[in-house]
């Protein structure tokens, strides 16, 4: 990622490294304004029929993972409490409290469960998410 783009897209250096849109398949889509996501909470975006949970963490660091909680079968992860376990950012499912790592999508209690993660960026106060297909 080049210097210029980082300053343009993310007000902080804390976001996970992101790929440059043109270089990868998939499309970026503007979802909502940052203000639509209250600090330290999540929202769910419906993108091409897919439910994606987007979280706004401390210092406006953003993450996006599947909204579907495979342990309960319900689409609820965006409504979970966020925080960290051992420094690793996580969300706790509101149904049976499984924790999912926001960077990797891995379930802390059951490493065999893996959620999709999605690149997410803040551009001019808008939240953008990239999905494949």
């Amino acid at each position: 990622m080049n210097q210029l783009q980082q300053t343009a897209t993310s007000p902080t250096a804390g976001n996970p490294p992101m790929s440059v849109p043109a270089e990868q398949a998939g499309t970026w889509q503007a979802v909502c304004s940052l203000e639509d996501i209250w600090p330290n909470t999540g929202v769910c975006a419906l993108i091409n029929g897919r439910q994606i949970a987007i979280f706004r963490m401390k210092s406006d660091v953003l993450y996006a993972i599947d909204n579907h909680d495979p342990h309960s079968g319900a689409n609820v992860l965006s409504r979970g409490i966020v925080g960290d376990l051992g420094g690793e950012p996580v969300v706790a499912s509101p149904i049976y409290k499984h924790h999912y790592q926001l960077r990797t999508g891995e379930c802390v209690e059951d490493a065999s469960t893996q959620l999709n993660t999605y690149p997410v960026q803040l551009r001019d106060g808008m939240v953008w998410v990239k999905t494949t297909a």
Binding site: T41, A74, G80, V82, P94
Partner: peptide, 22 residues
């Protein structure tokens, strides 16, 4: 309230009891 909402457990978060299907 904006700075309290993010702390609330599943049910308090939406002032209702979440069910198995969400």
């Amino acid at each position: 309230k904006k700075d309290l909402a993010s702390l609330q457990d599943s049910n308090d978060y939406f002032l209702g009891n979440i069910q198995k299907d969400g």
